[in-house]
């Protein structure tokens, strides 16, 4: 009796084709997508029919959380030729320096911002703490900074002297007297915006004048009274042309 021989089939599958497909997919994703920006609060922007793309350089983005906290992020010139003096990092460095000096001159308070703080600040994409707490905030590790900025009402985070009310750029009036003796008021938001406008980067100034340099971003459910303070302050410093971030409207809308 002959034994019935079961043929042993090889279980090896040729993965070459599969590999080809995955590499193609990977290439597609790498080319078409942009990385998500790290933001203190996630917002869903309202939709509009406007097809103008968000600029990726020379823009100050003002993010308004539904609770009315204001964060800013700053992008400098993307042109490699200008990177040395107008790129994001030198720009942020300069803006913090100007803003802190302006704040000190107007309030008489010391901010205590050191050169090391400027270096750290230059690497942060977004910011939003009062200027007098900036030094302490910048001493924290990056992860702690994110945790502090991203805190919610239900889970307050307290770090040293930094309390939940120290998130966001304050809009508290700062009264000062200018060199002609006029009594005026300003606030930290205005100080920041002026510092950005008056920076040595000519391209961002031009963008702000054209209305492309400031992008206001907020959640669709945010109440108008919350955003109104931002719009109102922009009007006060005569930056009445700006853009708002929206998503593309779908056919159903």
């Amino acid at each position: 009796m002959g034994k019935v021989k079961i043929k042993r089939k090889s279980t090896l599958i040729d993965m070459t084709a599969m590999s080809d497909v995955t590499v193609l997919l990977l290439t597609f994703f790498m080319l078409t997508s942009t990385f998500l920006q790290k933001e203190p609060v996630t917002v869903i922007t309202p939709s509009s029919v406007s097809e103008i793309k968000v600029p990726t350089s020379n823009v100050a983005q003002v993010l308004v959380s539904p609770q009315g906290k204001v964060f800013m992020s700053l992008l400098g010139d993307a042109d490699p030729e200008n990177a040395e003096k107008w790129g994001s990092e030198p720009l942020r460095r300069e803006v913090l320096k100007t803003a802190a000096a302006d704040y000190e001159a107007k309030t008489g308070k010391k901010t205590g911002i050191t050169s090391a703080d400027l270096d750290k600040f230059a690497k942060n994409a977004s910011f939003g703490v009062p200027l007098d707490k900036m030094h302490e905030f910048l001493l924290l590790e990056t992860a702690k900074q994110d945790e502090f900025l991203g805190q919610t009402v239900d889970k307050p985070v307290i770090m040293g002297n930094l309390t939940p009310k120290d998130t966001g750029i304050p809009f508290k009036d700062i009264a000062y007297t200018d060199k002609d003796g006029n009594k005026l008021t300003t606030n930290e938001f205005q100080i920041w915006m002026r510092a950005i406008y008056n920076s040595s980067n000519d391209n961002i100034r031009e963008a702000v004048q054209k209305g492309e340099g400031i992008a206001v971003k907020s959640d669709r459910g945010t109440k108008f009274e919350t955003i109104h303070q931002v719009l109102d302050n922009l009007q006060t410093i005569k930056m009445n042309k700006f853009s708002v971030m929206t998503a593309l409207k779908t056919e159903a809308d």
């Binding site: 103008i52 968000v54 042309k241 708002v244 998503a247």
Partner: peptide, 11 residues
Amino acid sequence: TTMIKSQTLSI
């Protein structure tokens, strides 16, 4: 990553 780039509306 995100595929959609936000749009802007100027006012």
